[in-house]
Structures are given as structure tokens and as C-alpha cells.
Design a protein around this nucleic acid. Structure first.
Length: 484
RNA sequence: GCGCCCUUCGUCUAUCGGUUAGGACGACAGCCUUUCACGUUGUAAAGACGGGUUCGACUCCCGUAGGGCGCGCCA
């Protein structure tokens, strides 16, 4: 159990409820994925629940496509949520109700400033190098002053003195002077609620006990805290996780390639590897680097989350991914690979070939293939020789290996292979090694030309495995194609 | 401009006042070897800077520098 140090006493603490609350204006980006992972891991660790809420109150930018991209991304990563995903927009009536409640309590007021006036106010402040904040024009005006025909917004009447404190698990005790927080709009002039109001109402109504999100929300946390207090509600336990930066230290952006998790899928990363990598970014458990998801759940705690931003390191992800590919049972890798193929160039074709009869050969080759692949893309590339049709095209290195000397070596080994009673790797290895020894050749002088003729490349799994996987007829034919 | 936050090897991090500052990725060198990969052995590599506090600071405090985030009728 994670013992909460602030607010709730351990004895009285209710089951943990976390939530992941993305706004559907694009795909699930990598930072969001990690936030979801942390929420998920914490909920699982405590035996609590993780809820999912789609923050779709911005009708202009929210799309159905983005919602399904986010859901798909979460599913692919293996992060399940409890219950149905909640649409924030659908709860607008409730948000309005709370806005009016705040009005009644004297903790909110109508503001008749137009967007243009506000823009002018901001411009003025900037020109005079003052902080840009709402100046409180309508904060204490009488209702009778309202201009006719203007639809007002509702603003929250924020405390002007003192300070707001956020007791944050990652950030520690953060103190924000109230004078730096202005009266934010909670209900737009069209009657629709804004983010900070909706979040507070939803988190409260959904019974969220722990909020885990990016530090970019830290200032919002202060404003939201004020709303909780104004409503007399318990403030949830907060954890603001540092952001993930690109390899150059700047904010992760399109420039760095992969933004959405589906891009990571297309690059051939395994969900388990990405989970492990992401967990290690900003969270640690001693010196542990490689751990299962079960261990993550067992170990995960808010207190071990760091405060400083981390850079995304593809080299490390790749290393981890290679580890996972090697360590994962063949049948699981196969399943992942088949699920991966539709998402990459050349994948659908390979999938068709597999389903068209090449599955057996691929399955036999998989143990040798996966030993060498750091990503599923590499697996796909290195498996290509299985699907090639004769005569095999050769890459430059393969051509170099099949010079006069190489071809002569192949001609010498053909009868040896043809004479084999059983077409199995150990038998071929013994026979070819004996042949090499008798001929006074180093094994490499035979193996490399064989590799070139059989795969069209200078690298492949062990050559005897390749021979076996290809089968007697196909293998001998490929050798003869390139030994003349 | 104002507010908040951050700063240990190139990167991710351990350290919770006393360590030869540890691990991992990456790099480099060697070994293994039919190629590649794996594996394995080893090497280089860090407390931003300046002041305090203390018998003793990477660790606590202050300042400086650099960086991040926030400041919408976006979320």
C-alpha cells in the first residue's frame, strides 16, 4: 500500500480511484501514454480503479477519430480502464448546475467583458510589462450595471489574498500566491462550461481520489483547488509528473518523429517493452531496469516519481525491445508480429504470403530470427528471404561473396548436401564441417557463400538452420542458381 | 514580464549528511563465433557555478547561470 502522507488518514482512506483524462484532439501521444501507465499502475497496485474520461468539451477540436485513436492506443499498450469511458461534454448540464451553485454561494459572478475588451486588456498589460490577468472589472459590480443585450460569462471569484497550497507527491509542497491567479471563466457566454470547472466537477462526482497528470497542469491544480474549497469538497491527492522531452531536450514534437503510440507500434516495438521503458522514465525502483508488468504493479508508488523532465532515448528503447523479443515465447512473438504487419509497409503482403502457405516455414525460422531482431521491423526485414522467389536477388555484399571462389565452394558442397539422408540442421552441420576440414577450408569460406545464395544477404540466422527451414528442394535450387 | 518547477556520466537513473558516487543504455577495446545478433570481460564517462550551515555535503539553506511549464470564452 502507498501510505498517503497528506489529507486522508490511512484508516479512513477509501479505495483508490485514478483517472486518465485525455482530450480527443489528436492521437495518444507518448507523454499521455506514460500518464495513463502511471495511473493504471497505481490503481492496480492499490487494488483500486482507473477511470477513463474523454475531455471533449472543445467541440471545435474534438473528433471521433481521435477518440478511437486514444482508445486503440490504450488497448494496444495493455492499459485497461474500469467502467465505460465518460464523455465530459455529456455532463455539461451538471457543470452548469455547479457554476450556478457557485453563483448562489457568492463565489462566482457574471462578467460582461467582450472577448475584444479582454484582448485589449491583455495587450495593455503586456505593453506595460504587467502580468496579464483579468482586472476584476465585474467582480463587485451590482447586477443593475449589466449592459443590455450582452451575454455574460460566469467567472470564479478567486481569493485575492493569501496563497493556495498544493501538496503534491512528485512536486512536494507547492505554494502559489493567490494574487497571481485571476478570476477564471467557468461558464462561457454560450453557456458551456470550461475545462477547469468541468474537471473539478467530474473528478469529484466520479469519486477520483488520486489525480496523476503532467506538470503542465500544476497551475490548474491551484485554481482547481480553489474551486474544490469553494464547493466544500475534498481535494484529491495530487501528483504532477514531469514532462517527457525529445532527445535534444526540447519539448517532444513532430520533429522527433514518433508522437503517437501507433507510431511506436509501426516502428515494431512491443507493448511490454514500451511499458517497461516508459515506466523507467521518471520513475525508478532502485537499480531495476527490466521488470515485468506484474512487478511494475507490485512496486509502483507515487513517492518514487522524480521531479525533473526526462529525455526520450530511442537507443535504450530499442535495446529493451530486443530483450523483450528474445525473451518472449515464439507463439507470442508470432501473435504480435501478425498484429503488427497490417500497420507497416510491405506488411500486408507478407501477411498474405504467410496465410497463403508460408506460415510453417516462418514458424520454423522464428527462433533464429527473433534472436537477432531489435524490432518487429527488423524481424520483418530479416524474414524476407523466406518469401523471396528464385532466382534470388542479391545485395552487394552477397554479390561479393559469390565470386569465383565462392561459387566453386558452393559447387563442392552441393554433393555433400545432396547425399544427406536427413535434411536436418545437425546432420548438415556435421557433414559440411567434415567437408570443409577435408578440403582444408575454414567454415566461413563455405558458410558465407551459402548464406549469400540462400538469403541474398551477408547476414542471416545460423546457416544450417536456414538450410533446414528452406527445405531440401528449395535450398538446393537456390544454391545451384548461384553456383554456376 | 509575472508565477511555479528543475539541474548526478552523452542519455535514463541510484544515493534519502560519512560510498573508491552504484546500475542500465550508448561509446570504445578484447573474448566467443559460419555472418549478424546474443553473450561475456574490461575501459573512458557525472554531482551546473558561487557562497554558507556542519566535524563532514551530491544530499540542507541562499544566490547566480541554464532549462522547463503555466499565464485563452483550449484542454
Amino acid at each position: 500500500m502507498c501510505s498517503a502522507t497528506i489529507g486522508i488518514s490511512p484508516v479512513m482512506s477509501s479505495p483508490v480511484i485514478t483517472r486518465f483524462a485525455p482530450s480527443p484532439t489528436g492521437f495518444l501521444h507518448i507523454g499521455g501514454a506514460r500518464t495513463a501507465l502511471f495511473n493504471w499502475a497505481f490503481a492496480r497496485h492499490t487494488g483500486g480503479k482507473m477511470l477513463l474520461r474523454i475531455e471533449d468539451t472543445d467541440r471545435e477540436r474534438s473528433t471521433e477519430a481521435a477518440i478511437s485513436a486514444i482508445l486503440d492506443g490504450l488497448k494496444w499498450l495493455g492499459l485497461s480502464w474500469d467502467g465505460e469511458a465518460v464523455s465530459q461534454f455529456a455532463r455539461a448540464d451538471r457543470h452548469r448546475e455547479v457554476a450556478n451553485d457557485l453563483l448562489k454561494r457568492g463565489r462566482a459572478y457574471y462578467c460582461y467583458c467582450s472577448p475584444e475588451e479582454l484582448e485589449a486588456m491583455r495587450a495593455r498589460a503586456e505593453a506595460e510589462k504587467r502580468p496579464v490577468r483579468y482586472d476584476g472589472t465585474w467582480r463587485d459590480r451590482a447586477a443593475g450595471d449589466a449592459p443590455a443585450g450582452v451575454k455574460p460569462v460566469i467567472r470564479f471569484k478567486a481569493p485575492q489574498e493569501g496563497e493556495t497550497v498544493i501538496n503534491d507527491h512528485a512536486q512536494g509542497r507547492v505554494v502559489i500566491p493567490n494574487k497571481d491567479l485571476d478570476d477564471l471563466i467557468i461558464l462561457r457566454s454560450d453557456g458551456n462550461p470550461t475545462y477547469n470547472l468541468s474537471v473539478v466537477v467530474d473528478d469529484h462526482d466520479m469519486g477520483v481520489t488520486h489525480i496523476i497528470r503532467g506538470v503542465d497542469h500544476l497551475t490548474n491544480a491551484a485554481r482547481q483547488t480553489q474551486i474544490y474549497l469553494a464547493m466544500g469538497w475534498d481535494v484529491p491527492d495530487m501528483t504532477h509528473v514531469p514532462l517527457i522531452h525529445g532527445p535534444d531536450g526540447a519539448k517532444l514534437s513532430k520533429r522527433h518523429g514518433a508522437l503517437g503510440v501507433e507510431a511506436y507500434r509501426a516502428m515494431g516495438y512491443l507493448p511490454a517493452a514500451l511499458r517497461n521503458y516508459l515506466a523507467r522514465l521518471g520513475w525508478s525502483h532502485g537499480d531495476d531496469e527490466i521488470f515485468s508488468t506484474a512487478q511494475l504493479v507490485e512496486w509502483f508508488g507515487l513517492e518514487a516519481i522524480g521531479k525533473s523532465p526526462a529525455r526520450f532515448d530511442f537507443a535504450k528503447l530499442e535495446n529493451l525491445n530486443g530483450h523483450y523479443i528474445r525473451a518472449t515465447p515464439d507463439e507470442v512473438v508470432l501473435k504480435e508480429f501478425l498484429a503488427f504487419l497490417p500497420h507497416v509497409a510491405g506488411g500486408p503482403e507478407m501477411l498474405a504470403a504467410l496465410e497463403g502457405g508460408r506460415m510453417a516455414a516462418f514458424t520454423r525460422a522464428l527462433p533464429g530470427l527473433k534472436e537477432r531482431a531489435k524490432t518487429l521491423v527488423e524481424l520483418q526485414t530479416s524474414a524476407a528471404f523466406l518469401f523471396a522467389s528464385r532466382p534470388l536477388p542479391l545485395d552487394d555484399k552477397a554479390k561479393g561473396l559469390l565470386n569465383d571462389e565462392g561459387r566453386a565452394a558452393l559447387r563442392g558442397v552441393v554433393p555433400v548436401l545432396e547425399g544427406l539422408a536427413e535434411w536436418i540442421a545437425p546432420a548438415m552441420e556435421a557433414a559440411v564441417k567434415a567437408h570443409a576440414e577435408a578440403a582444408g577450408l575454414k567454415l566461413g569460406k563455405l558458410a558465407q557463400p551459402l548464406r549469400a545464395a540462400l538469403t541474398g544477404s551477408a547476414t542471416s540466422p545460423g546457416i544450417f538452420d536456414v538450410l533446414e527451414v528452406l527445405g531440401r528442394e528449395e535450398a538446393l535450387a537456390r544454391i545451384k542458381d548461384h553456383s554456376a
